[in-house]
Design a protein around this nucleic acid. Sequence first.
DNA 1: CGAGATGTTCGGCT
DNA 2: AAGCCGAACATCTC
Length: 261
Amino acid sequence: MPELAEVEYYRKQWDPGLGKIVTQVLMHADKRIFRGTDVEALVKNLTRAKLLSSQARAKQMLFRFNRGWLGIHLGMTGKLSVQPGSQEPGKHDHLVLVQNGQKLVFNDMRQFGRVKFHAGSEPPAFWTEIPPAVTSPEFTLEYFQNILKRHARLPIKGTLLLQTGFPGVGNWMADEILWRAKIAPRVSSGKIRKPSELWKQARFVCSEALRIVAKDFSDPPAGWLFHERWKRKGFCPIHKTPLRRETVAGRTTAWCPKCQR
DNA sequence: CGAGATGTTCGGCT
DNA sequence: AAGCCGAACATCTC
């Protein structure tokens, strides 16, 4: 379920490995997860390397070692965990960093995720080029309105999912933002009546998700659309109108036809 | 058995 | 030419 808050949660799962040496790298090197990655360099550099620190940004994570940088994207079904040293890797445990007494495991059933490796002391371009976070000071109302203008003909649901504009926002967060801003998902991005409200709700949902979900994988509070939008028959938390559920901009979308116009 | 799942990417079209 | 759309990717579950 990885959107920005879940990604931050998973990043922390490898914290027990900080400051420790990787004694062995186990991997399914031929898997799609490693497409475009120099797996030989990854194994060579990470074997006997020490994990120094980690960060999460948007839907990506970056792990700093004393001999390079490991970038991980979780795709649809990626997870990070720490397993006992005695645990044998499972079918979908595509990357396993063995340390003394424990294993740092990346598991991804569907393999829409991605593992990257970058040697050198400077952080890789794929990391530094991630655009400003929705919650950051750079994400001003003016900046936001420029994104809307650039994608004026794309349904607003699709625009909120653009990682070049809203890094880390995924399907459930986009629906939550639109529900709170009372905007129907098919409205063209160039025809938003009150951009300041949408901007405000985007920032609210991102910061609350980070505060609540990233902490310990708690669900958002009662009253959020989140709890209804998975259900085949969900209802608007405000007045119990049945939610509509259709594909918009290529993604399943749930919204309240009464609140959202 | 077919459809769908919280994500990207690519090729084709306007 | 930038931007939009739909298909594809791999696997499991309902």
